[in-house]
Design a protein around this nucleic acid. Sequence first.
DNA 1: ACTGGCACTCGACCCAGACGAGTGCCAGTC
DNA 2: GACTGGCACTCGTCTGGGTCGAGTGCCAGT
Lengths: 338, 338
Amino acid sequence: MLDDRKLQVLRAIVSDYVSSQEPVGSKALVERHNLGVSPATVRNDMAVLEDEGYITQPHTSAGRIPTDKGYRLFIDRLAGVKPLSPAERRAISTFLSGALDLDDVVGRTVRLLAQVTRQVAIVQYPVLSSASVRHVELVSLGGDRVLVIMISSTGKVDQRPVEVPGITEDELAQLRGILNAALAGTSLADAAAALGTLDDQLPPPLSAAGTQVSSALLEILGTSTSTRVVVGGVPNLTRFGAEFETTVKPVLEALEEQVVLLKLLGEAATPGDVTVRVGHENPYRELQTTSLVASAYGSDGDIWASLGVVGPTRMDYPSTMASVRAVARYVGRFLAEG
Amino acid sequence: MLDDRKLQVLRAIVSDYVSSQEPVGSKALVERHNLGVSPATVRNDMAVLEDEGYITQPHTSAGRIPTDKGYRLFIDRLAGVKPLSPAERRAISTFLSGALDLDDVVGRTVRLLAQVTRQVAIVQYPVLSSASVRHVELVSLGGDRVLVIMISSTGKVDQRPVEVPGITEDELAQLRGILNAALAGTSLADAAAALGTLDDQLPPPLSAAGTQVSSALLEILGTSTSTRVVVGGVPNLTRFGAEFETTVKPVLEALEEQVVLLKLLGEAATPGDVTVRVGHENPYRELQTTSLVASAYGSDGDIWASLGVVGPTRMDYPSTMASVRAVARYVGRFLAEG
DNA sequence: ACTGGCACTCGACCCAGACGAGTGCCAGTC
DNA sequence: GACTGGCACTCGTCTGGGTCGAGTGCCAGT
């Protein structure tokens, strides 16, 4: 059905179209890639590829452009891995040195990814159900208010204020000790359970406060497994194409929806490997004119979160995939050491 | 020079152009606003207004559009305050109820502002040199690493890891006590000074650790006076106009530059009042096709930070200004109570 | 000081024609 | 049977000319 040369033709179409943004015809194809056959032959091959749904014509007298299905085939079977340029390699291996804290790491990562891929970059804050509670802190805010702080083993800090009428500093210290004894070192998943049994065991003067505090902690644990994402490189969308209001607006809207982005990245969950969703393979209508290239990152098969880029379906998949993979690996390694 | 009617003509031009986005001619003006004079008269007035630089013609056979100078005059002398609609009023007074923490407050604010103004909203995290240190916390991360955490009276939490070789839990507790005794309750500005004198007074076993920790605290104090900004409503830029690559891209780029945004908002520092920068009044070239409407927010003359919106110069100034002012006031009040 | 009238400008729109890239098909060749 | 050269055909893009009309500036008249 699809012999070797037809695949080669498809590959040539994809690569020409990606670089020129214009429908590619048989003659130009033969000229630029030495296929060893005449334009007429290529035309026949193209007709077959079109029948099979891999390419399409915008209009009768124009060249062909790849369909989503065509890109898919290209990615699965035709894309060689394009090695990173030395400059990119260098940028990736140095961009995190000197990072201050987690915010800084994520911020730098998103900027780097946007820069090397020239697409919109999306980075999810690391979160690990396998992470553990490092420390719980209770701080009196004066009056009846107490700030509950939880620090996880990733260095992430969450806080939440609660109302605890009439608690003394001593009681606070006591409660702090009990909480840390019970929670410190437990995984985030176990911590929730531990909190449940804890409530009953508190001495009466603390029980009211304990209920308040542990419900705050539960909230923190809850939100802490669905973290934020950060987006960068939005200006790159301007290279998207002419149709502004119709094409770019939905994408911008999707990018402001944390929930959508989280789901999107969440589904790209195999670490080490790069997941690509081309156009309509994407479940979100707003993003069906785009492709997502994403990868999970983590350490030793332990997935922390995902990152990736979103761009027009006509993107340079080989190098984008290479960049995303490289960045994901590097961030994983950096955070594991850090 | 500019008699009453000429000003009225300018006002009419601005308001018509803002709503129609198209150059407005003398005839249409007379029809829509009952100026009581003929188109020819209006034309004469327009000629004067054009001489003075308040309006301009895109091309010879077109109507007039306001210049930046025209908008400026409009804002200073002609814009009546447009009262908020009941729906807006309601939205503004309820959008913060149930906010969880500072992130949530800022996030909700930026969304609200973007929604009611239909522009790009920018909200700066509250920061107060007049704020004080609520609490300093040191948490051992295992090994030689210690996490330094500072909580300010706004509820903002900053952290930074430091290397402190061979410190014991006891010493950590001791240091924590000393630091809190010295810093808790002092303003962020005074805290830096207090840290300086503290170093000398530490008992020898703590002095090495103390140096590390206090330099981390100084960093936190430093960054804590120049906080982050959050941007929302970017999809609203699609209503900007046709010229995409040339007009919108620079704006998008500016919006990704935290530094630029901070400076921009920083200059809009009078609380309670709304500052407007029209087009070229703006120091940043990327934003000279836009207007900024901003206001500081705070409590009792105590400025915490600023918020505002960025949009095309042809925006509805009266209602945008009303919305920004209302939101700024409400957030200030909310945070003061909260 | 205002108005009605008039000549003028110039962008927007429409139409027709030329151009050319690209196609599909077919008969011919290796 | 696979490939090729040739050819008629399609159709989007570009160009140029012509019309239309909104809007202007100016001027003479009230």
